[in-house]
Each structure stands twice: as structure tokens, then as C-alpha cells.
């Protein structure tokens, strides 16, 4: 691969990043090639030692997404970060996707339980409107108590979600830092 091929592959694989950052990264590799050529190496030799531009880009993109979810923890940012980290290698697929699905399922079911408890008095009321003959006070009081419980669960879930998200972002960072990506298989 010539320098131009290497840089243009890297550039296309980095299109998610801002122009400024991409320019900065390409600049680093320009410099690397320039010094290498100055030492008498060919562009092909240099790019062979650098390794695959795709893999380099993957790592940069993963870091970018993990940083982004750390500053703004939206669901879509989280999905992008998880996806990018999984893309780093097969090992990440196992140790990232598994915990992610498990945690997401637990959090989702917590929210569903909390919210459905909260709306349970409404359901009792609707039920009463449709079938006035089955109304009893026990149902109403029970559903009001359930709504109180649901409120507590929902508030609890808010904090649980925040904590778990923070913890999981740290886990993603750890993955980017220590697990496979860009190193030669030996």
C-alpha cells in the first residue's frame, strides 16, 4: 500500500469523526511517512509495519464513541459505543455484548414494572368505566398502593440506570484500553 492509499483508506474509515480531528490524525501519519521515507524506507514498507488502516480507524472510532457516551449518555450514544467496541474484535463480542444485553434487559424490565405500577389506578378506572358492575374498593386501594410502589421503583430505577451506565462506560473504556485492537496476532 502506498502512502496515499493508506491515508485515503484511513480517511474514509474515519468519516464519523469531525473534520478537524480527522485532519489531525492524518497529519500524524503524514509525519510518520515523511520521517520513514527520510530514513530511506519505501512507502510500502512503512505502511506494512503500520498495519491495517481499517483496524487503526476502528480503534480511533471506538474511543470517539466511548468519549461521547461519557459526556452525553443517551441510549443511541450507548448503542453506538457498544457497537464500536464490539467491532474491535471477536473477544469483545463475547465479553461486551453479553453483559450489555443482560444489563439492558434488567433495566428495561425495572422501568416497565415501575411505570405499569404507576398507571395501574388508571387501568382500574378504565375497567370500572367499561364494567361498572365489577368495581370494588379493594381493587382501587390496591392499585393506589401499587402506584406508590411504582413511583418508588421508578425513582430507584433512575439512579440505578445512571449508576449502571456510568459503570458500563468505564467497562467499555477498559476494553478499548486493554483488549485486542491493532496488535499483531502472535
Amino acid at each position: 500500500m502506498t502512502k496515499d492509499q493508506f491515508l485515503s483508506t484511513l480517511n474514509t474509515s474515519l468519516k464519523r469523526l469531525s473534520t478537524e480531528e480527522r485532519h489531525d490524525i492524518l497529519q500524524d501519519f503524514e509525519e510518520h511517512f515523511a520521517i520513514g521515507v527520510g530514513e530511506g524506507k519505501t512507502e510500502e514498507q512503512i505502511s506494512a509495519s503500520l498495519g491495517s488502516p481499517h483496524q487503526i480507524a476502528k480503534e480511533l472510532v471506538a474511543t470517539y464513541h466511548v468519549d461521547k457516551v461519557e459526556t452525553t449518555a443517551t441510549t443511541s450514544n450507548m448503542f453506538r459505543a457498544v457497537w464500536a467496541v464490539i467491532g474491535l474484535g471477536f473477544f469483545n463480542l463475547i465479553i461486551v455484548l453479553g453483559p450489555f444485553i443482560a444489563l439492558a434487559a434488567i433495566i428495561l424490565s425495572g422501568w416497565i414494572a415501575g411505570i405499569s405500577f404507576i398507571v395501574s389506578p388508571v387501568i382500574v378506572m378504565i375497567n370500572t368505566i367499561i364494567y361498572p358492575e365489577v368495581f370494588n374498593f379493594y381493587n382501587l386501594f390496591f392499585s393506589i398502593a401499587l402506584a406508590g410502589l411504582g413511583l418508588l421503583i421508578t425513582i430507584g430505577m433512575y439512579y440505578v440506570t445512571r449508576t449502571v451506565t456510568r459503570w458500563f462506560v468505564r467497562y467499555l473504556k477498559f476494553n478499548v484500553r486493554f483488549l485486542k485492537g491493532g496488535l499483531k496476532h502472535v
Partner: peptide, 14 residues
């Protein structure tokens, strides 16, 4: 150490 040299740059940025 035998490394893919390109992987040092993402590390430096991070």
C-alpha cells in the same frame, strides 16, 4: 516488541 506500529497513534491520542 513485535507490534502493529499504527496502533501506537490511537494510544497517543487517547
Amino acid at each position: 516488541i513485535d507490534i502493529s506500529e499504527g496502533s501506537v497513534y490511537p494510544l497517543l491520542r487517547r
